[in-house]
């Protein structure tokens, strides 16, 4: 649970920007690790459409404070560097980051975590917005994840006209290949995904006998964790964070 540390406990973390190999390239990533020897479960953190930004660095740190060795790859780093909003605009001008590179970068991040002496070998994946869709996509394509968390991922369901060279598939069509339990967190006022799309995703998971739990929040729309925006809904966000911690505890620490 959030804010349940003992005041005499060890809750320090260390953070670092690293590079790790993906094919012949070096990918830029933010890593946060708890103090101590471990072993710690790992989490791949998939940033949202607005980029590899300060919110996602703090998001990664929060997971480390709760005992996870967390890595957040800079999925836009191949496009160049600048402020996160400038890099995001550049990526947008080129039709968005390609699913294939996201799958490769997150798959290599999983391998990087599993190779760390401080990692227990159990690794989850979490993302919000486009990162929620990417988390579902990656967990459906790359074996080895023990838990996946989709925070209001838009585009898990996509009509044919919404597919593009960068996003050639709708992740819902890969549900049969999803072999990690899935936690979904959604706002009922969201328009991407809509409540109807969330229901369709749940129906597909149920039909194929997948392990999942979905939580839907009234009074919340898209991005309700984003405390730097008017979308923030503190009560719903903190309830959902506790759902995440409980889910990761069950599947990554058990």
């Amino acid at each position: 649970m959030w804010n349940s540390f003992r005041t005499d406990g060890q809750v320090s973390i260390a953070t670092q920007i690293i590079t790790y190999p993906v094919g012949g390239e070096q990918i830029h990533a933010y890593v946060a690790r708890p103090q101590g020897e471990g072993p710690f479960p790992g989490v791949v953190v998939v940033h949202h459409m607005p980029g590899w930004d300060e919110f996602y660095q703090e998001f990664t740190e929060r997971l480390a404070r709760h005992g996870y060795l967390a890595i957040c790859p800079d999925l836009y780093c191949r496009f160049g560097h600048g402020t996160s909003d400038d890099v995001t605009a550049l990526v947008r001008s080129q039709g968005g980051v390609h699913d294939e590179t996201v799958v490769a970068d997150c798959g290599a991040a999983l391998a990087w975590l599993k190779a760390q002496p401080a990692c227990s070998g159990k690794v989850g994946i979490i993302g919000s917005c486009s990162g929620g869709r990417h988390a579902v996509l990656v967990a459906s394509r790359v074996p080895g994840f023990a838990a996946v968390v989709d925070l209001w991922g838009g585009g898990v369901i996509a009509s044919p006209d919404q597919l593009s060279p960068a996003r050639p598939v709708a992740p819902i069509d890969l549900t049969k290949d999803l072999n990690a339990p899935l936690l979904g967190i959604f706002g009922n006022d969201d328009r991407s995904p809509t409540p109807e799309q969330v229901n369709m995703h749940e129906a597909e998971l149920r039909k194929l006998g997948k392990r999942y739990e979905f939580h839907r929040y009234d009074g919340a729309g898209h991005g309700f964790f984003y405390y730097h925006t008017p979308a923030y809904r503190p009560e719903q966000a903190m309830n959902a964070w506790n759902k995440i911690f409980a889910f990761f505890k069950e599947h990554l620490q058990g």
Partner: peptide, 21 residues
């Protein structure tokens, strides 16, 4: 701004650098 979504308009020259917009 306070919107969930907005029209995003960028005039750019990425031959210069990522911030040239």
């Amino acid at each position: 701004g306070g919107l969930e979504h907005a029209v995003l308009l960028d005039f750019s020259n990425y031959d210069l650098d990522a911030g040239a917009r």
